[in-house]
Amino acid sequence: MEDVLYLTLLIIAVAFALTVVFIVIVLHRFTKLLRTAGSTLGQVETDMQQTIPELQNTLHQTQVTVDDIGEKLQATDSLFDTAENLGHSVNHINQAIQKTKPTLTSNELEEETKLYVEGIRWSAAASYLYKQWKGANTAAKKTSDSIDQTGKEG
């Protein structure tokens, strides 16, 4: 009976030793995995330190582009206002023609619409002058901006 007890203890000891060896192997592999993950995260951190300034620069350039688009859209507001005024003028001319169509001769019609035609001409001239003025201001601003950005003053 004693032999069976010793044999049982031997089997338990061998099983325990195998379990310990298995746990050591698993822990060793887990350690290698953690080292590899740490190395990879270190590389990712280095890459992110290089990428973040580039991303910030891109965002800044995007903001400048969006601001520029906003300014250009505001510059077109006067054009659309002029087109709206032109549409109103044409509508008023049409209404005047419809009201007086049977009774006016062509000379009288010209006299009636002369004021509207003059208004359209002055609107077109004002729009042209505004565009020229806006273009000159934009060119001057770009010139001053490019001078400021060189960093070679004084």
Rank of each mutant, 00 (worst) to 15 (best):
E110Q: 09
E110M: 01
E111G: 04
E111V: 01
E111D: 09
T113L: 08
K114I: 00
L115K: 15
L115Q: 14
Y116N: 09
Y116F: 07
V117K: 06
V117T: 12
V117M: 00
V117I: 11
V117A: 04
E118G: 01
E118T: 13
E118C: 02
G119A: 09
G119D: 15
W122C: 01
W122S: 09
W122T: 12
A124S: 08
A124W: 07
A124V: 15
A125D: 11
A125Y: 11
A126F: 02
S127M: 01
Y128M: 04
Y128N: 07
L129H: 12
Y130N: 12
K131I: 03
K131E: 05
Q132G: 00
Q132A: 07
Q132P: 06
W133T: 07
K134V: 06
K134T: 13
K134E: 08
K134F: 05
G135A: 08
A136L: 02
N137Y: 04
A139W: 07
A140H: 07
K141H: 09
K141R: 10
K142L: 12
K142C: 00
K142H: 13
T143H: 11
T143D: 12
T143G: 04
T143V: 14
T143Q: 14
S144T: 11
S144L: 10
S144A: 10
S144K: 10
S144E: 14
D145K: 04
D145Y: 01
D145F: 02
S146K: 08
S146T: 07
D148I: 02
D148S: 14
D148L: 15
D148T: 07
D148C: 03
D148H: 15
D148Q: 13
Q149R: 09
